[in-house]
Design a protein around this nucleic acid. Sequence first.
DNA 1: AATAAGGGCAACCGCCTGTTC
DNA 2: GGAACAGGCGGTTGCCCTTAT
Length: 254
Amino acid sequence: MVRTPCCDKTGLRKGTWTAEEDRKLTAYVTRYGSWNWRQLPKFAGLARCGKSCRLRWLNYLRPNIKRGNYSKEEEETIIRLRESLGNRWSAIAAELPGRTDNEVKNHWHTTLKKRFKRKSSPTSTPDYGKDKNGDREKEGTKLNNDANRLVISSPNPPLILESSPSSPQPASSDQNSSITADNNTVESSRLGLVSDDNLFEAYEGNEADSGSFWTEPFFPDSSYKWSDMWAEFPFLDGEILYPFGFCDLEGFNL
DNA sequence: AATAAGGGCAACCGCCTGTTC
DNA sequence: GGAACAGGCGGTTGCCCTTAT
């Protein structure tokens, strides 16, 4: 079977995401959900492959991602599950709330694999709780490669964020429209999507509730006034196209 | 201080699977 | 039943930072 490329490669950016791209993607997915990753970049005003957008969202921008140091329990879980499941990173990550398969995979290859080998050796013990740089990653904060990127890890339970009550519910999901977020990251703040502009309102919730958000189909909220979006995302300045222009828009408040 | 080496992690690539028509 | 498509997954790469020399 001849497969079409996931996207037209011409003119698409690759490599590290910029803060502006992050803002656009976050704003779009937060508001409209991931109704179609392949089409999404076009509507979100991004010169990126849809798969790249998906990966960026799932592994980095998604609000309930836990970042930073792994606990001893988490590392033991990874090692134990890998022994039983093999390299099924997504299955392993599913047992670690807030961790992504990519992150778990990276952590295994960069850290745990070595520890595991040493642990297997009868003369050595694993050095849990200490990375290769000793205490390089201080408790609570971590400076990432990107100077603009400050990630804060915290032992607090994750928060679930949802759109401001004053604005329509994001047409994104099941539990419907609530998205989960973690106060471990200040990424959203960096993106200018929280706090001052009141786009998100944090509240506590059951993390398990967020699970299907990412898998449920996206249904547009018929009550939403699309034009209100520009007021909420002034920085986008009209760069995002309305989705569903090709759909039955009956009931939409365009 | 300069450079090399090593390591962490974000992102890409290509294949697989599930769904729709 | 099969083609086309989208999403998911794991392997791998390459950039950039830290540490060692």
